[in-house]
């Protein structure tokens, strides 16, 4: 765990840059993580996915699978990969300030 500064906030991150405390997150932090990961601007559709990931994590204690993401977030799988080409579940979790999803699906 290392401390870094994102969008002017001091935050703790894991070696891959995922926030270790979801409570330290805000939307400015999300925007900066997105820019650092190849998404210059978060659109309304990006936010729909990021918010869904975050809500599910805070509710269930685990990030949803790509299957659930495609079925329940309101954004279909094809579009998820257009929005987050480097991996929707992983990247939306990172931007949403929650731990990296651990599932295989």
């Amino acid at each position: 765990m290392t401390q870094t500064t994102i969008a002017g906030h001091p935050v703790d991150v894991d070696p891959e840059g995922f926030l270790t405390d979801p409570g330290a997150w805000d939307r400015d932090i999300a925007a900066e993580i997105a820019r650092d990961n190849g998404i210059p601007e978060l659109t309304e559709r990006h936010w729909q996915v990021v918010d869904f990931m975050r809500e599910r994590y805070l509710r269930d204690g685990a990030a949803p699978s790509i299957r659930t993401l495609g079925k329940a977030s309101g954004v279909p799988v094809k579009e998820l990969y257009q929005l987050f080409p480097k991996g929707p579940a992983k990247l939306a979790a990172k931007i949403g300030g929650i731990p990296k999803p651990r599932g295989c699906i």
Partner: peptide, 18 residues
């Protein structure tokens, strides 16, 4: 239970993923 899709759905998911 583990959210692993049946084969037809899984293949479609993989195709949709590009």
């Amino acid at each position: 239970e583990l959210d692993i899709p049946p084969i037809p759905e899984f293949v479609e998911l993989i195709a949709d993923s590009g």
